[in-house]
Design a protein around this nucleic acid. Structure first.
Length: 163
DNA sequence: GCCAACGTTGGC
DNA sequence: GCCAACGTTGGC
């Protein structure tokens, strides 16, 4: 019996860290640091497993949308940037002995042949229910259903299914 | 750059 | 525990 994997959408501002930046990392792998929202953290802590797949979403840019796919390669562990006073993610209330914030490691898989913009998602009757389409949605990590995952891939021109 | 939506903080 | 003030997110 195959293990069920979960699907995710993770936002990043391309000016700060784009999908190309991830692909340029050694082993195409990096840690996903700087999550400072409890709900997003809890998703990582409770539901994110090694082998899960995630959409890389570019936010706060000319054309926000889903641009590629990455894989979760390490489950949640303490986000060290919270302990670094020089980091913009520094949080004096995160105790190294009881870390408040977590991160995961992600590995670049591929870019979508055609990015699926937020406008495109919103225009689709199935995908417009995605959390990322909701007005005022600020969650930077959110679950994606299998149906949503496949529908996005269909729109991306890739044609392939998720499995 | 604007601003609506939202989460967090802290006084009470 | 309420809620106003504040800071941040992120589309536009």
């Amino acid at each position: 019996m195959t293990k069920t994997i979960n699907y995710w959408l993770m936002k990043s501002e391309p000016d700060a860290f784009s999908i190309d930046d991830l692909a340029a990392q050694p082993n195409k792998t990096d840690h996903w640091d700087g999550i400072r929202n409890y709900q997003a953290r809890n998703f990582m802590r409770d539901d994110m497993n090694k082998g899960d797949l995630a959409f890389f979403y570019h936010s706060n840019c000319d054309e926000p949308g889903i641009v590629g796919i990455m894989e979760i390669v390490r489950t949640a562990y303490p986000d060290h940037t919270a302990f670094d006073p020089d980091s913009k993610y520094f949080d004096p209330k995160s105790d190294p002995d009881n870390p408040r914030w977590l991160m995961v490691d992600v590995r670049y898989r591929r870019k979508l042949r055609r990015p699926v913009s937020l406008a495109t998602l919103k225009a689709d009757p199935v995908l417009s229910t995605m959390r990322v389409c909701q007005k005022g949605s600020r969650l930077s990590i959110m679950p994606v259903s299998v149906d949503e995952w496949d529908a996005v891939l269909d729109m991306s021109g890739t044609g392939g299914r998720s499995k």
